[in-house]
């Protein structure tokens, strides 16, 4: 059936929703393109035949054209959704993708990711005063100024903005300014306790 293979691509995409990004299905894409090329050639042949005076080919041309359009839509949808997923990952994982994700990208996607990275970095540098602003830091607006944290390792002394010195010792619990301890949480020194 026409456009069957393109639908498979979409199905594959659908199955992976919420999971990890599946590998770029290059074979299938090539097959779809091949199908489109064949359809296109036939259409051209029929069109030139019609121009030459033959009749009764018109409905065939229309069916093939519809199939071509559908294939195109499916392919674009496939690519677009993958790109969207990759974009999401940029905000989640930061500028360096985990290797197992990177493995599943095709070359063009890697290139796109690099360019997107650069754009985002440029933009973030240009806003929020001299140092720039890391937009990926607070994806949701924080509810409280202070957070409850647990210390996971012996980190030693930590000086807060108001000049107090806190000893971050393993298994002690603290109530600290969110902005101060955020990087420590990300480094895995502190653990944010959510109730």
């Amino acid at each position: 059936m026409l456009a069957e293979k393109a639908l498979d691509l979409i199905r594959e995409l659908e199955r992976s929703v919420g999971g990890s990004l599946p590998p770029y299905n290059e074979d299938r894409v090539r097959q779809v393109l091949e199908e489109m090329r064949v359809l296109c050639e036939q259409n051209q042949k029929d069109v030139s035949a019609t121009v030459a005076g033959e009749s009764g080919l018109f409905s065939g041309v229309q069916v093939r054209h519809a199939a071509l359009e559908r294939n195109k839509r499916c392919l674009l949808a496939y690519l677009y959704n993958r790109i969207e997923q990759i974009k999401k990952m940029r905000w989640e994982f930061g500028s360096v993708l985990p290797t197992e994700v990177k493995y599943n990208l095709c070359e063009q996607e890697v290139q796109w990711f690099g360019r997107y990275n650069k754009l985002l970095a440029n933009y973030m540098r240009s806003i929020g005063g001299c140092g720039g602003l890391d937009l990926t830091q607070d994806m949701k607006p924080p509810k409280t100024l202070y957070v409850e944290v647990r210390c996971l390792v012996d980190h030693g002394e930590f000086e807060t903005q108001d000049g107090n010195v806190i000893v971050l010792k393993k298994n002690s619990q603290h109530f600290l300014l969110r902005s101060e301890c955020e990087h420590l949480i990300r480094q895995g020194i502190l653990e944010h306790i959510v109730h």
Binding site: Y146, K169, H174, F175
Partner: peptide, 8 residues
């Protein structure tokens, strides 16, 4: 919003 440190 009182800051504290808890040590067992």
């Amino acid at each position: 919003q009182i800051l504290y440190t808890i040590v067992p």
